[in-house]
């Protein structure tokens, strides 16, 4: 069986939960080799073993150019047939840099993968269509949309392999600092539940009712383009064609009309709920559950019911 690499993303000292689905995808096509940038491999060994990583390759670097060079060296050293990862901001960046070093094929934001045939299904036209992409070349690089593949436990015992290689300089790119968003909330693209506000939110201040609800769900808060353009929320919270593409198990849209562009960014959600004062809003024609009502009454009521149930 061939070796399939998985770039593991850390959140501080912990592994992001969305990595386990990627490990499951890797196990479906061969022996999973985890690639992790960490100083302490022992600390994460148990978690990775539980989801089938037979080898855990630990590396040390902070610059993305040097990280990618190390990854490319691991691909060669362990003769990886494919390198998978999360299609998050960090994952996309490192997979793309590594694919370019190796001149290897790359598909990002994939929602299905068939390693045997080198095929992926990915979003196209911002979610309006999906495309089957045939990848050809030596090491397939694939970034999977978080949460699209359910993690399945596959306990193994792993070998911990610290890895270093000569990476040279960082080719003219230097990280000066990381500015924290300070929201402390879950990253939108990785959230399992998202509650989103549209133009009727009417102010940035009013988003606090969504944050209160998100806290009990628990989930992340999104915004429509109209709300972002009106200055109620930053672009990092925007869902839709010119924002984030998300795929949570539950998506609650508050005061959304249901535009083509917005749906492009969230229509692969498992369950979609619409809340709108207008019973004829297009969103009710293409979601699972609907409530006709004022979001300023419905959302706090929802928070209260959820609180009671917890």
């Amino acid at each position: 069986m061939s070796n399939i690499g998985v770039l593991i993303e850390m959140d501080g000292q912990e592994i992001k939960a969305s990595n386990y689905g990627v490990l499951t995808a890797a196990c479906s096509g061969g022996n999973a080799v985890a690639l992790v940038f960490t100083e302490n491999g022992e600390a994460i060994k148990n978690d990775l073993e539980r989801f089938g990583a037979g080898k855990i390759v630990t590396m040390s670097a902070t610059n993305p150019v040097q990280k990618a060079k190390l990854m490319a060296a691991v691909v060669k050293e362990f003769n990886l047939r494919a390198l998978l990862g999360l299609s998050s901001a960090r994952g996309r960046d490192l997979l793309a840099r590594c694919a370019c070093i190796l001149d290897a094929p790359l598909a990002l934001d994939a929602i299905q993968i068939d390693l045997a045939d080198g095929m992926v299904v990915k979003s196209h036209f911002s979610g309006k269509t999906t495309a089957i992409i045939q990848l050809s070349g030596d090491t397939l690089h694939v970034g999977l949309r978080p949460n699209v593949i359910e993690a399945v436990e596959k306990p193994v015992s792993a070998e911990l392999i610290p890895f270093t290689a000569e990476t040279g300089d960082s080719d003219g790119l230097k990280i000066l600092e990381v500015k924290k968003g300070g929201t402390g909330t879950i990253d939108l693209t990785e959230a399992e539940i998202i509650i989103t506000g549209g133009r009727p939110m009417d102010s940035a201040e009013n988003f606090k009712i969504l944050h209160a609800c998100a806290k009990v769900l628990p989930g992340a808060v999104g915004a429509s383009r109209a709300a972002v353009d009106a200055g109620f929320a930053p672009h990092s919270m925007q869902v839709g064609q010119t924002g984030k593409t998300v795929s949570p198990k539950l998506y609650i849209g508050c005061g959304l009309s249901g535009s083509v562009q917005h749906f492009a960014g969230m229509k692969t959600s498992r369950v979609i709920v619409g809340i709108n004062t207008d019973k004829d809003a297009p969103i009710f024609g293409k979601c699972d559950y609907g409530i006709v009502g004022d979001l300023f009454e419905v959302v706090p009521a929802l928070t209260e019911v959820l609180n009671k149930n917890r």
Binding site: A89, I175, K179, K180, G181, G182, L188, P234, S236
Partner: peptide
């Protein structure tokens, strides 16, 4: 933009 509202400053 790095996700979660974080920003990386790169030279």
């Amino acid at each position: 933009e790095m996700g979660g509202g974080d920003r990386e400053v790169i030279e």
